Simulated assay, not measured.
Amino acid sequence: MHLSFPDVLLIIAVAANGLLAGLFFSFACAITPALRRVDDRSYVQAFRAINAAILNGWFLLIFCAAPLSAIAVAVLPLGNRHAATLPWLIAGAVCSVATFGVTAAANVPLNRALDRAPTSMETHYRVARERFENRWNRWNLIRTLTSSGALTLFAIAATRHSPA
């Protein structure tokens, strides 16, 4: 089986957006509900540790590959099946870019604010958490939906792209 460059890009788009959707879904369904059960100091310390740990090469590679491959696969022709897949590819690219945008414009600034928040007194932990938790969770839910949408749309495009 010979895979064309656009085929490879579509596979990358499916995989990268799927990995992000899984990560954000894990936060929405397990990590943030678990952290709701801990005291303010533990919450801030745990989230700061998560923020530091996630900034690694593997995450950044996938985080950048998702929208870049999404845009590329939406603009490159896929041969005679391009017309059947184009709406799905464009919608998937929009979702993928939205995921990137939400993360960069909302979640990352909230992470940085939490990291900079004063914590020299016990009440500081409560204030830091109150300024962070609900807003971050709301934006994470949005990017969970957009990344899941990207994954779904690219998977549909892949099935329409496959030879009959």
Results as ranks from 00 to 15, higher is better:
R135P: 14
P87K: 06
H161K: 08
E133K: 07
V38S: 05
F25N: 02
F100W: 12
A93V: 02
L19A: 07
L3K: 13
A66V: 09
R41C: 10
T32G: 12
A117E: 00
N51K: 11
G18C: 03
N80C: 15
L141D: 12
R143H: 06
R116K: 11
L151A: 08
A158S: 00
V97A: 11
C64N: 13
N111D: 07
L3T: 04
F27G: 00
D115C: 12
T146V: 01
L68W: 08
E130Q: 13
A83L: 11
L89K: 01
F47R: 13
R36M: 15
A164T: 14
I90Y: 09
L110F: 01
D7P: 06
A28I: 12
V102A: 10
L35T: 05
D40V: 04
P118D: 03
D40M: 06
I50F: 06
T32S: 14
A91Q: 08
P33K: 00
I156N: 12
R37C: 14
S148F: 08
E133C: 12
V97K: 09
F59L: 06
N137M: 11
T99Y: 13
A93E: 07
S42G: 12
T99N: 13
I31C: 01
D115I: 06
M1V: 11
S4P: 01
Q45H: 13
F25G: 03
C95Y: 07
A157H: 04
I11K: 08
V44F: 07
V108Q: 00
V97S: 05
L55C: 11
L35P: 15
I50C: 08
N17H: 04
N17I: 03
A105P: 06
A83K: 09
A28P: 08
L10D: 00
I90L: 02
A158T: 02
A49K: 08
A128K: 07
L10R: 00
S147V: 02
C29I: 15
